[in-house]
Computed example of a mutant assay.
Amino acid sequence: MQSQFKKRPFSIKSVILLMTFGLIPIALAAQSYQISKGEGEVMVTGTSTLHDWEEVAEQKSGSIALDNTGELPKIKTLKFTVEAESLKSGKGAMDKNTYKALNTKKHKEIVFVLKNVKSVSPVVSSSDKYKVVATGDLTISGNTNTIDLPFNLTINGDKVLLKGKKALKMTDYGVEPPKALLGTITTGDEIEVHFNTVWK
């Protein structure tokens, strides 16, 4: 019996090599993409007692990892960040009120981090586009809520496109809607985030 066991020696080195080579296909299956800062757009729209408004994010960053080896792509990771003070409306006074409401001196970033993917379904008219509903944590002004984020995912060679929109309430994140002219102009609580982003 002892001689039989001696014929099958397994060293720690052999086990490590087997584990390493076994994990290589998994590592290669997921491909990582970084957001293209010079392409795409992220915009926030809303209303006020005076007029509708919009702000465009001039600084954004993020990464997404996809496994596209199966029938449907799998989103392994997704993180998206907007610099809060890069939101620009073209009106300096409005921007200052926005930064004050968001408390940007303390909370510099708006961040979405994926927790899980609820659904992925192909768009019938396209071979490379999918409808996705992702669940993740959205942090605004230091307050975090878990939300469902719907978007279209397009995989085009070395590019990935994410396009969608999401309605939010500022007060859900402890943000008081900005006011102007001694409170005579009030911003509506409801806003909508529109994103059309390119990842490479």
Score class of each variant (00 low, 15 high):
residue 95 D to Y: 04
residue 192 E to A: 11
residue 43 M to Q: 11
residue 126 S to V: 08
residue 73 P to N: 12
residue 126 S to H: 12
residue 32 S to K: 12
residue 173 Y to L: 07
residue 176 E to D: 11
residue 117 V to T: 15
residue 116 N to Q: 14
residue 178 P to D: 05
residue 147 I to H: 13
residue 90 G to P: 13
residue 110 I to T: 03
residue 170 M to V: 00
residue 184 T to C: 04
residue 74 K to S: 11
residue 121 S to W: 01
residue 166 K to M: 09
residue 23 L to A: 15
residue 170 M to I: 04
residue 71 E to V: 00
residue 105 K to L: 11
residue 15 V to I: 15
residue 21 F to G: 08
residue 21 F to V: 13
residue 122 P to G: 00
residue 86 S to Q: 10
residue 155 I to H: 00
residue 17 L to M: 07
residue 144 T to L: 12
residue 110 I to D: 01
residue 109 E to F: 04
residue 59 Q to V: 09
residue 76 K to R: 09
residue 54 E to D: 13
residue 135 T to L: 13
residue 93 A to E: 12
residue 78 L to M: 14
residue 47 T to S: 15
residue 39 E to W: 08
residue 152 N to D: 10
residue 107 H to Y: 15
residue 10 F to A: 11
residue 132 V to N: 01
residue 84 A to E: 05
residue 38 G to I: 00
residue 42 V to W: 03
residue 35 I to C: 02
residue 28 L to N: 07
residue 127 S to T: 15
residue 3 S to I: 01
residue 56 V to L: 06
residue 96 K to S: 14
residue 186 T to G: 01
residue 187 T to R: 05
residue 125 S to Q: 10
residue 183 G to M: 09
residue 179 K to G: 06
residue 54 E to A: 06
residue 106 K to I: 02
residue 150 P to V: 01
residue 95 D to F: 08
residue 81 T to I: 15
residue 27 A to V: 14
residue 68 N to P: 09
residue 172 D to H: 08
residue 153 L to C: 03
residue 63 S to R: 07
residue 48 S to T: 06
residue 32 S to V: 13
residue 195 F to H: 00
residue 65 A to W: 00
residue 12 I to L: 12
residue 75 I to G: 09
residue 72 L to F: 09
residue 60 K to F: 01
residue 111 V to G: 05
residue 197 T to D: 05
